[in-house]
Amino acid sequence: MNTIVIGIAGGTGSGKTTLTKRLREHFGEQEVSVINHDSYYKRHDELPYEERCKLNYDHPDSFETDLMIEHLKQLRAGQSVEVPVYDYTIHNRSDETITVRPAPVIIVEGILIFASQELCDLMDIKVFVDTDADVRILRRIVRDVKSRGRTLDSVVSQYLTTVKPMHEQFVEPSKRKADLIIPEGGKNAVALDMLIKWVSNHLSAV
């Protein structure tokens, strides 16, 4: 199968998921498959819940990126993959998986996906969603408190101790690897239209 792989990176709460949603809406659910780096957080059955809560989940080493790379290669080769399911309420992988099937457009989404050169080499275009830090932290608070069962204090503490320092050390520098930088992600209609046209032209050429 001829595929286009789009890497969408950016800080927490930057709008990566919104951009991914807009692309899927335009090209159709059957034409776009998505794999999210968050699904590949390492399993830590050896640690009790209290210790898992203390781990740094914003460092590249917290992910099983090698497995994601293997899955992306399989998808590009026309094979379906079983993607892990991460359960944020227990800070560990669940025993479930989700089947992701190959498609003409494959989106790889994640905060730290550009930190891996091997992963970058599998992408046809690398997009960085750039959003102000104050907007991103507010979005993260709303998401984690409403959808992931977190307390406000725990979200703020994690942001100050790991999220912000890791963003400055790993995420922000990875912007240099991007082919396209989009302020405000899927809400930037002009940039979204440019990306859609690029993907459409690329699809028609393969």
Score class of each variant (00 low, 15 high):
D95Y: 06
F128C: 05
V156K: 07
V129Q: 00
E109P: 04
Y159V: 07
H167S: 10
V81C: 07
I181G: 04
E46M: 04
D179H: 15
V129M: 03
K42T: 06
Q158E: 08
K54T: 11
V5L: 08
E184R: 11
K187M: 13
N2L: 09
V135K: 01
S154C: 05
A103P: 00
L19D: 09
H202Y: 13
N92V: 06
I107S: 07
G11M: 11
Q117V: 12
Q117D: 08
S157C: 09
K73F: 05
V156P: 02
P104W: 06
Q79K: 14
A115T: 06
Y86W: 01
P102I: 06
E109G: 07
T97C: 07
R176F: 08
E51K: 15
V83F: 04
V105N: 01
D45W: 08
C53K: 14
E168S: 12
S94N: 06
D144Q: 12
A103S: 06
V142G: 00
R143N: 12
K187S: 14
G110K: 06
N92A: 07
Q74R: 12
Q169M: 15
K177I: 00
V163E: 03
E50K: 15
M68T: 05
A9R: 04
S147F: 14
G28A: 06
D45G: 14
D130I: 03
A205K: 14
Q79C: 10
H71I: 03
G110C: 11
A189I: 13
D66N: 15
V105I: 15
K54N: 13
T99L: 12
F128P: 00
D134I: 13
Q158C: 02
P104D: 08
L119W: 00
L203M: 13
V34T: 07
F128Q: 03
A189K: 12
L23Y: 02
Y86G: 02
I137G: 05
